[in-house]
């Protein structure tokens, strides 16, 4: 059951005008591609993503009076969507569905360092070639493979463009945690891209370079 089913009619009645509803619908429809894209990266499932978008839209309308500046509806919708996802996941966590990050030993992994060949610098650039050949599906697969806490922080920072402060508030963690989690998440994302490219024969089958950079 989704929020749109659950929400009592009284919760989404609020004496707003038809112009309000028209404005709201126009913005939502304009943003639908981005809302759905963000929801899909968070849930990794099309049906769940659609439910999440619909729930968020219903939630936004029922709480519209809390939005002081209507020019901020866009960011507010993404905030509601992310919080709705996190809220559902916290319930799952209480039920014991939790992913540990302890085993993810990818601190400091750098795709650039794997690809970069300084001796060829003047006549070749493997890293540029890699990016030129990078497919959306490769990146999607790599993001989807991240453990949830890493995926969420990548979605917030890289897909939604949130600041560290905004992420810290959303996740209710200190800014230092945001910074370190984001660094680890990107390290793992790049390792996924590298492993896939290597297995597909898109880059040389050389041994992974080990780095101690943090």
């Amino acid at each position: 059951m989704t929020l749109e089913d659950r929400a009592p009619k009284s919760a989404i009645d609020s004496g707003r005008s038809a112009a309000d509803r028209e404005w709201f619908e126009r913005i939502v429809v304009e943003l639908l591609s981005d809302l759905y894209g963000t929801a899909l990266r968070l849930t990794r499932n099309r049906a769940d993503a659609e439910d999440l978008v619909a729930d968020s839209v219903a939630r936004a309308w029922s709480h519209l009076d809390e939005l002081a500046d209507r020019a901020r509806l866009r960011g507010w919708l993404f905030c509601i969507l992310t919080n709705a996802f996190l809220s559902a996941r916290r319930t799952d966590t209480r039920r014991g569905v939790q992913q540990s990050l302890d085993d993810e030993n990818n601190d400091g992994f750098s795709l650039f360092e794997q690809l970069h060949a300084p001796i060829l610098l003047w006549w070749s650039s493997p890293e540029k070639e890699f990016l030129n050949n990078l497919l959306r599906e490769d990146l999607t697969r790599a993001v989807d493979a991240l453990p949830e806490p890493f995926r969420v922080v990548v979605v917030l920072a890289d897909i939604q463009g949130c600041t560290y402060q905004e992420i810290a508030e959303t996740l209710q963690v200190p800014i230092g945690t945001v910074r370190s989690r984001l660094a680890r998440a990107r390290g793992q994302l790049q390792k996924e891209l590298w492993t896939h490219a290597r297995d597909a024969g898109l880059v040389g089958r050389k041994e992974m370079k080990v780095t101690t950079e943090s």
Binding site: Y36, G37, T38, R136, L139, V143, D158, G161, L189
Partner: peptide, 12 residues
Amino acid sequence: ASTAELRHEPVP
């Protein structure tokens, strides 16, 4: 920037 592009998804 490539990761940011994942935000756009064709809407069913």
